[in-house]
């Protein structure tokens, strides 16, 4: 299972990456895509939407089933990756490139305290 060391993680299987401009990029993990199976539909939140922690804010549907993607941190959606709904299978083939949305965090220290790669690996172990 691929768990890149430089990313942060939450137990609902989203990954997070801090960008230079202070925003945070969010996607789903390799473990998540593997569990979901072949992905065929993705719905992303609207740009400008304010997210609370744990709020269902995107939908990914595989051939098998529909699943919610939860906001791992609070903040405002500032960008979404339109390439993913156009090619949902990219979540299966490159889950750490096929990011879903970018958030300007309400709390600049939002990533502190989230799981690092080692802790996430242990969780899915």
């Amino acid at each position: 299972m691929n768990v890149p060391a430089q990313l942060k993680y939450v137990d609902t299987h989203e990954w997070l990456r801090a960008e230079a401009d202070g925003t945070i990029t969010v996607g789903i993990t390799d473990h998540a895509q593997e569990a979901l199976g072949d992905l065929v539909f993705v719905e992303l939140p609207a740009v400008g939407r304010k997210l609370a922690v744990g709020e269902a804010c995107a939908i990914v549907e595989s051939v098998k089933a529909a699943s919610d993607v939860y906001a791992p941190i609070a903040g405002e959606v500032v960008a979404v990756n339109e390439a993913v709904p156009a090619a949902p299978e990219s979540l299966n083939t490159k889950p750490y490139e096929a990011w879903l949305f970018r958030v300007r965090p309400a709390d600049p220290k939002a990533l502190d305290g989230l799981l690092d790669a080692a802790a996430y690996e242990k969780l899915i172990g």
Partner: peptide
């Protein structure tokens, strides 16, 4: 049924 709109998957 064949879904003609986009917006999800029939279940």
């Amino acid at each position: 049924l064949i879904l003609t709109d986009t917006g999800g998957v029939l279940r």
